[in-house]
Amino acid sequence: MSQSGATVSQECITAFNDLKLAKKYKYIVFKLSDDNREIVVEEASADKDWEAFREKLVNATTKSRSGAVGKGPRYAVYDFEYSLASGEGSRNKITFIAWSPDEANVMAKMVYASSKEALKRSLNGIATELQANDNDDVEYDTVLKVVSKGLAG
């Protein structure tokens, strides 16, 4: 269980299995429900464009306690594919991204950070995980370097 007590909805696991086994999706974006009780799927997509995915994270919002809308954290799973620099073909790595922009309000950051474990543990088959806190952290090249451990060509 997470340290916040938040739970994971079944749809998260279903969508993840569709991505992992059926290759139905390229990525899934997860968020906490408005009452912060449950992690739900915000969007699952087959779109292969990293930039479009990145925009989704960078533009994600959340409501603060006072109702003001600001940048918001998210979780995401991306079926990352890259070719090895050594020419030994390509690799697939299902990558978990904990996105928590530094500008997000502290309440949202706290809730997402303390609930992350619940989701990660429900999703079986994650190869790599990364924690991203500013726009540079989710640039394709930055992520590629982390995911491939520098072995991508």
């Binding site: 530094d102 950051k109 950070a113 992350k116 474990e117 924690q131």
Partner: peptide, 28 residues
């Protein structure tokens, strides 16, 4: 402190009154 910064994993450097401590946090 790590959670409040939006991080489940972090190296926390706490420079307090009586002590300074450094603690690695991994997945909370």
């Amino acid at each position: 402190a790590a959670f409040a910064a939006g991080k489940a994993s972090a190296l926390v450097i706490d420079v307090g009154g009586a002590n300074t401590s450094v603690t690695a946090i991994h997945d909370g």
